[in-house]
Design a protein around this nucleic acid. Sequence first.
DNA 1: CGTGAAAGCAAGAAGGA
DNA 2: TCCTTCTTGCTTTCACG
Lengths: 140, 140
Amino acid sequence: MESADRRIVELLRQDGRMSYTDLGRAVGLSTSAVHQRVRRLEERGVITGYSASVDVALIGTPLTAFVSVTPLDHRAPDDVPERLRGVDGIDACYSVAGDSNYLLRVRVATPQALEEMLATIRTQAEVSTRTTIVLSTPWE
Amino acid sequence: MESADRRIVELLRQDGRMSYTDLGRAVGLSTSAVHQRVRRLEERGVITGYSASVDVALIGTPLTAFVSVTPLDHRAPDDVPERLRGVDGIDACYSVAGDSNYLLRVRVATPQALEEMLATIRTQAEVSTRTTIVLSTPWE
DNA sequence: CGTGAAAGCAAGAAGGA
DNA sequence: TCCTTCTTGCTTTCACG
């Protein structure tokens, strides 16, 4: 990837609402040139989307946790992600090397909601879970 | 929080570059009314920023890992986040309840880069580490 | 990759429920 | 307080060189 593209991606990662004009000034290209590059970056799948970051405490899901997930039956086909895709509140799903097969990041409103979510995860995906509560998030 | 604000936040989470005009149409308010609300959401800290999502494989950091961090000296003041803030490649830092004190998500280019980063983390923060490699990311 | 014109959007002021 | 409308200046978009 080219150096101008790198800088554009870098800047858009920091401020996803930066205007093409400002991007142009920052990388030394015209507005349209930048616009073209951004469009190509989106088409090539380098930029996959834009999103607002939100304070999870202020939108009603103040409780974050990481859930390590291990299938109960090691011989069963591993379709854990498919089985969990519908479960609301699972923010991210990572397939990992190590003690467990998957690591999930979940966000919920209350300890009770977490309890229910864990029950859902266990029955839905036929797995055992090990949960680590997040106390605070110095950065993300 | 009000229902209109909720919808605005929801929409901006899905598309951080959505225009105020389109937001207005979606929630049934004028452009300026939406603009005002977004500004207030930003001021109140509900919306903390905007960012482009990027395919990490395509920008040269294809290797993601989670690093559990435990201070070597339990009596020393806990300033791990401050000590690690400058380290490049640490994407997120969570203070957690459990075996370790912190959980980091890191992104690097190669296993060698990971090795170097772990050395940096250990010396910089005076901690021991336990690393879990991410094999794939079904979603995030 | 740049230019320039047209359309669309943002941002502020003023005023009304 | 919160909304709308109006106005001004930018930004985006697109056709073309």
